[in-house]
Amino acid sequence: MNFPVVRNRRLRTSRGMRNLVRENSLSVHDLIYPLFVTHGTDIKDEIASMPGVYHYSLDRLEEELAEIHELGIQAVLLFGIPEHKDAEGTSAFEEDGIVQQATRRIKELYPELLVIADTCLCQFTDHGHCGIVVQDPVSRQAVIDNDRSLELLARTAVSQAKAGADIIAPSNMMDGFVTAIRAALDEAGFEQVPVMSYSVKYSSSFYGPFRDAAHSTPQFGDRRTYQMDPANLREAIREAETDVAEGADFLMVKPALAYMDVIRTLKDNFDLPVVAYNVSAEYSMVKAAADKGWIDEQAVVMEMLLGMKRAGADILITYFAKDVIRWLKEQ
């Protein structure tokens, strides 16, 4: 009898066999966990649109850090919610700003935990944009003053490094932001502090829950003039090439789930570590469907993140980090 050839069936017969030939895997070393810190006391407030994610005041931060440490998470991405907002986002670069205070607190409690400081102005401006807004003299429309914004972003990066941040992660998408921040860090004596650039950040509909968490929704207009068009791939290569030339140490793609082709493109074209940001709506959609009983949350999350690794991500920023580590320990 002639039997059809079925390739690789013998390599799928058992879990042990599949593990031997597995091409990609997830580990605790892949993961960065985002943290939201705020002013006030005795605050641990769940973010309504992101179940299981909280705002922490500095005096409640230790309990979250203890859990992070116990799970073996090595890095957190720090976002601050300030008391004061103004047109220039001055709270972003003040010595006693919320991110700076939280960074010092983390380093006091867990000095080995890597602190990655998000470097942007949107949480700190009263208009919610990532740079300084001015009126165009011709069109009379509100526009971003790119160069003035760079000056404030550079000040913010230096203040974060002085507070102890291990990595600066600029998410603002201003033209020339890596050059400005790299030069400012070097001039201030922080040559060893790397820049994790949000190189490819799309003007996406997947940020809604984050804007709820960070209180950073634009008060007018949108961010399409300085974030990327979701329709464009070649532009991502140009953006990344610029950041590499300007001195970036990591290249990030944000969001991740709908942009795996972009992750693969960066992986194939550049030799820097590629970071995928599994963003807030990607998290919240899974949580909502799991709450309804429509999906197996663990199975979906692990498959989703593994897909990002398969696409080429070296590092994953995800709100699922704590859950993933617990699930990995159960395997």
Rank of each mutant, 00 (worst) to 15 (best):
S284Q: 10
F250K: 02
K254E: 06
Y283L: 09
M285Y: 10
N269L: 09
V275R: 03
N269K: 14
Y283W: 10
V262R: 00
D268F: 06
N269H: 15
D249M: 11
V262M: 01
T265E: 14
A281Q: 10
Y277C: 07
K254L: 08
L272Q: 12
E282R: 06
A248V: 14
A258P: 04
D268T: 11
M285N: 09
N278H: 15
P255C: 03
R264N: 14
A258D: 12
L257G: 04
A256E: 00
N269R: 14
D249F: 10
Y259R: 07
F270V: 14
Y259A: 07
A276D: 05
L272V: 13
L272G: 12
D249W: 09
D271Q: 14
S280M: 08
L257E: 08
D268H: 11
A276G: 05
V275Q: 03
A276V: 07
P273I: 11
L257S: 14
T265H: 03
D268E: 15
S284I: 04
N269S: 15
S284C: 08
L272C: 12
Y283G: 07
A281G: 10
L266I: 10
Y277S: 05
L257H: 10
A276M: 11
Y259S: 05
K267E: 06
Y259T: 03
D249Y: 11
Y277D: 04
V275A: 04
V253A: 05
L272D: 11
P255W: 01
A256L: 01
S280Y: 06
L266M: 10
D271K: 13
P273E: 12
Y259H: 13
V275S: 03
V279D: 06
D268L: 11
D261F: 00
L266G: 07
L257F: 13
I263S: 03
M260K: 15
M260C: 11
S284N: 07
V279N: 11
A258M: 12
E282V: 04
N269G: 05
I263R: 01
L251T: 11
F250N: 00
E282W: 04
V279E: 09
A281L: 12
L251G: 12
M285F: 10
R264T: 12
L272I: 13
V279P: 05
F270E: 13
V275P: 02
P255A: 03
Y259D: 00
P255E: 02
Y259G: 00
S280G: 09
S280V: 07
S284F: 09
V262D: 02
F250T: 00
D249N: 15
